[in-house]
């Protein structure tokens, strides 16, 4: 059904999507601006990160090579994080102690991920399609994590629950919780397991140019026992550890201002509008709508990848 709907969409917009040489130069930059503006608006409303929507949808809709899309996706994820982290630090929500423990591992794996991703597309004739299949699989994984993951507002971490690393490094923090009108103090547990988990998350984020909030938040909240607001804020701080992976894309010439500038501009403006819209409309409906889009994007990426590798017969146009 998804394939059928996509084929219909593709037929209607055939001239626009396949336009190539005949398209006016301004169409795709303008499209990226509007597209990321919409992502920026629905992202705060739905709770689904902008980077996670941008990469899979761009690989389906736009004519750009996946190298340039991942480069733009990574710059977008890092820029969004850089813009919000200073405010979150001032509020006591983003915790540099947690970051300093996780980031040394994540920097290495995100750089390796970025390098592997570009190597696969460039070294193998079918690399581009293999990346699409893997991206689709990751997106479906994100979908299932977002649908099934639970959140605990204020997880309790008792002194006996704390691991030795958490005690030795004195991981703690506090923030003001207006709902309770109180200062909330917190600490962590399961730190060694969390470090290993973050290593895997870093690799995936670097390889596909995805933001990693979808994975960071559940690990910080459910595994490490950090309050949900701190988990969300510290996740933004952790995403900044992906910044060196931008260097990988820069050194390969995979950052094009014609794609990056309108995309960052769009998401920056969109996020500000989205924050206001979130106060008005029902987030539950939008969240499910976005999750449905994410699911479809995952399926389409897998189909397009398998089709390109000639594993399955042609179902979708545009490969």
């Amino acid at each position: 059904m998804v394939a059928f709907a996509y084929a219909g969409f593709y037929h209607v917009f055939d001239d626009v999507i396949v336009g190539g040489d005949s398209m006016a130069w301004w169409f795709w930059p303008l499209f990226m601006f509007v597209f990321t503006l919409l992502i920026g608006i629905i992202s705060p409303v739905s709770g689904v990160g902008g980077g996670v929507l941008f990469v899979p949808l761009s690989t389906i809709i736009t004519p750009f090579n996946i190298d340039f899309i991942r480069g733009a996706g990574l710059v977008m994820a890092v820029t969004s994080a850089l813009s919000s982290v200073p405010y979150l630090i001032r509020k006591g929500l983003a915790n540099i102690r947690i970051f300093a423990i996780i980031a040394p591992v994540m920097v290495i794996t995100s750089v390796v991920g970025g390098w592997v991703g570009l190597w696969v597309t460039n070294a193998y004739p079918n690399g581009k399609y293999l990346i699409k299949v893997l991206l689709g699989a990751i997106i479906l994984l994100v979908f299932f994590i977002m649908v099934s993951s639970k959140r605990v507002e204020f997880p309790e971490v008792k002194e006996e629950d704390r691991d030795s690393l958490s005690k030795k490094l004195n991981i703690w923090g506090e923030y003001y919780e207006p709902d309770l009108d109180a200062i909330i103090e917190y600490t962590t547990k399961n730190t060694p397991i969390a470090i290993v988990t973050f290593a895997v998350i870093g690799f995936v984020a670097g390889m596909f140019g995805l933001g990693a909030g979808w994975a960071n938040v559940p690990v910080l909240n459910m595994l490490m026992g950090v309050p949900i607001k701190v988990a969300t804020a510290t996740s933004m701080l952790i995403i900044t550890a992906n910044a060196p992976a931008i260097g990988i894309y820069l050194t390969k010439g995979a950052i094009l201002p014609l794609i990056v500038v309108p995309s960052i501009l769009g998401i920056t403006i969109g996020a500000r509008i989205g924050a206001k819209v979130a106060e008005i409309i029902k987030p539950k409906f939008v969240r499910w709508l976005v999750l449905a889009i994410l699911f479809i994007a995952g399926v389409l990426n897998i189909i397009k990848g398998l089709q390109g590798m000639h594993v399955i017969p042609p179902i979708l146009p545009g490969v």
């Binding site: 190539g20 040489d21 398209m23 130069w25 795709w28 930059p29 004519p63 750009f64 090579n65 996946i66 190298d67 340039f68 570009l118 597309t121 460039n122 581009k128 390969k252 010439g253 995979a254 094009l256 201002p257 014609l258 794609i259 990056v260 500038v261 309108p262 960052i264 501009l265």
Partner: peptide
């Protein structure tokens, strides 16, 4: 990033010609 980036998009003049970039951005980076 924004100020020169917007000037580049509007004027089309830079290290890489905007019109040429548009033509080949479907190719892998190398």
């Amino acid at each position: 990033m924004f100020v020169p980036g917007i000037i580049y998009i509007v004027t089309g003049k830079g290290y890489l010609s905007r019109d040429v970039v548009v033509k080949y951005w479907g190719l892998k980076a190398s």
